[in-house]
C-alpha cells in the first residue's frame, strides 16, 4: 500500500504557500523568479499525484507542458532582468519604477 494522496497534496500545498510567501516578501527579482518555480513545482506534484490516483496519463502530460512553459518563462524573465540591469544597476523590485508618472 502506497502513501495516500492526501499527503502528497498537503506537501504540494505547503510548497505552493512557501513559493507564494517568497514571491511576496523577497525583493530580488531573480529570487522571485525562483519562487515562481517553486509554485510551478507544487502544481506539478499535485498533477502527478492526481495522475496516479485517477490512473490517467493526462496529468503527466500536463506536467510535461508545465515544464516547457517554465523553461520559456525563465528565459524571458531572465532576459527582462538582464535588460533592466543594464539601465538600473540593480535587480530589486523597488528599482523598477520606470512606469511611474
Amino acid at each position: 500500500m502506497t502513501i495516500s494522496v492526501q499527503w502528497y497534496l498537503s506537501l504540494s500545498v505547503v510548497l505552493f504557500a512557501m513559493g507564494l510567501l517568497g514571491l511576496l516578501v523577497r525583493r530580488n527579482v531573480i529570487v522571485m523568479l525562483m519562487c515562481v518555480e517553486l509554485m510551478l513545482n507544487a502544481a506539478n506534484i499535485a498533477l502527478v499525484t492526481f495522475a496516479r490516483s485517477l490512473n490517467d496519463i493526462g496529468g503527466q502530460d500536463a506536467v510535461f507542458f508545465v515544464l516547457v512553459v517554465a523553461a520559456a518563462e525563465v528565459v524571458v524573465g531572465l532576459g527582462i532582468v538582464v535588460s533592466i540591469f543594464r539601465r538600473k544597476q540593480d535587480a530589486t523590485a523597488d528599482d523598477m519604477n520606470a512606469l511611474k508618472g
Partner: peptide, 23 residues
C-alpha cells in the same frame, strides 16, 4: 515514488540541469 519515471528524469535534466544553471 508515483511511477512517473519519465517526468522525474525530465525534471532532473531540464530543471536542475538547465534552468538552475541559467539562474
Amino acid at each position: 515514488a508515483q511511477q512517473a519515471d519519465f517526468i522525474a528524469a525530465v525534471q532532473v535534466i531540464v530543471y536542475a540541469g538547465a534552468i538552475v544553471v541559467l539562474f
